[in-house]
Design a protein around this nucleic acid. Structure first.
Lengths: 140, 140
DNA sequence: CCGTATCCATAGCGATACTG
DNA sequence: CAGTATCGCTATGGATACGG
């Protein structure tokens, strides 16, 4: 059912709730949870680095991510692991070598993320251009 | 915010040529900028509400976004406007009626975002299941 | 009805130092 | 090499109140 305008005066809460279109409009919806992850500073970077079956060690990841701290790298990897998107493989050598890779689930995220990346690369430049050449032109 | 102008003081990427994939691995890359937007709490919600040529008034948006404050709604809309993703149309009635809709550019973001949303709806449940039934199974 | 301003709590994240 | 712990800053964003 499509939502209805609740102009019934009382801003408390109507009897029937959560009748929006899909979700996203609830605090605990899957999309919000994903976006929170995706919006975090290093998640997407890691996923894209591990895409296509790449398996990288902690240090290797770190080297490719200029500016990341151990803390945040570890933290983000743990999150990805907890979410079942990445896998951690420890080689019990000395010193230990820890390898990270995507799970099959994690790999399915790569497509959507790459699309977003492509969009950004294609359009963020245009956005920047808009912001500078703001001379009274109307956006279409 | 300490936005650095890339005049001459490039802090130097020693040795590493950072140009491995595309970018994303620089602080000012388009993808990071987009992800920062997309990761913000209300942006995606607004874009999806305005998708498909929908034009909504401030109050209408607000009613469909339970929990949003005027401040954040205004702020997010301004961002979208600044980025050229949304348009603001004021009807100078009394009291004024302000309508928001997507620009053509904004509309092109809808596809990628919907794909992400679809992914989330299809897979975040599985992730949640993993997190609960953590009985010693190995991720694939 | 729409927007702005102020105040404040918290979460994200970077710097640094220490351990096995 | 990989990970943990502590500290402190700042950005995000919620509550509230005021103004056109």
């Amino acid at each position: 059912m499509t939502e209805k305008d609740g102009t019934s005066g009382t801003p408390g809460h109507p009897g029937v709730t959560t009748a929006r279109h899909g979700d996203l409009f609830d605090a605990d919806c899957p999309t919000r949870l994903l976006l929170d992850r995706v919006g975090s500073k290093w998640t997407v970077m890691i996923v894209l680095l591990l895409a296509d079956g790449e398996e990288l060690r902690f240090g290797a990841l770190r080297r490719r991510m200029p500016g990341v701290s151990q803390k945040m790298l570890t933290h983000t990897l743990r999150q990805l692991e907890d979410d079942g998107l990445a896998r951690r493989r420890v080689e019990p050598t000395s010193p230990p070598a820890v390898h990270y890779s995507l799970t099959v689930l994690g790999d399915t995220l790569v497509g959507p993320l790459r699309e977003l990346k492509r969009w950004a690369e294609a359009n963020m430049g245009a956005i920047d251009a808009l912001r500078t050449s703001r001379s009274g032109s109307v956006p279409e």
